[in-house]
Simulated assay, not measured.
Amino acid sequence: MTRDTTENKQSMRTDDSDLLNLVTIVGRGVPSNFEISVSGEIEMVADDPMEQAVIVSGGVAEGSIETGVQRFRFSGECANIRAVDWNGVPAPESASSPTIHVDYGVSDR
């Protein structure tokens, strides 16, 4: 007999209300990469994060953006955000890298 050790990500948290903080990434029309790390848990606000090629694992999310908006809810504190444009020039040195907003205590879903 085999034992299934997989867990549903939702069951790892006590309550969705734990994810009261929000990171919003806005693309500027240039391919860019980003990485977000937080002290708690993070999840993408999207129907299918894999469709947008975003990897979310524990307290880290990484992916790319060219246009549009990507949002992430998280618990804890934002530890680090890194964004680079298609040439590898980091924000804020590149006017082409995405705009990033961090908001704490946002309970509106």
Rank of each mutant, 00 (worst) to 15 (best):
F72L: 04
Q70N: 09
E62D: 03
M12R: 14
V45R: 08
R13A: 07
E62T: 10
N8V: 15
A46R: 07
G88M: 06
T14K: 15
W86C: 11
G58S: 13
I81W: 02
D48C: 09
R3N: 13
L22V: 01
P90M: 05
D18R: 09
P90D: 08
G68N: 05
M50V: 15
T14N: 15
Y104C: 00
F72N: 02
G29A: 05
S11N: 15
E43H: 10
N33I: 05
T99A: 12
T6P: 01
D16L: 11
A79F: 02
Q10D: 15
A46E: 13
G29R: 02
E7C: 09
R82Q: 11
T6D: 07
N33S: 13
G63P: 05
D48Q: 10
F72V: 01
L22K: 08
G59L: 01
N33W: 08
L22M: 06
Y104W: 04
I65M: 07
G68Q: 03
G59C: 04
D4W: 05
T67Y: 11
G40W: 00
D108I: 08
E77R: 11
T14Y: 12
Y104T: 05
N8F: 10
G27A: 09
V23L: 03
S32R: 01
R13M: 12
M44Y: 03
P98N: 07
I42V: 15
V38D: 04
R3T: 15
D85S: 02
P98I: 03
P90N: 07
G59P: 05
A95I: 15
L19F: 12
R73P: 04
D103Q: 08
L19T: 04
P31S: 06
Q70I: 10
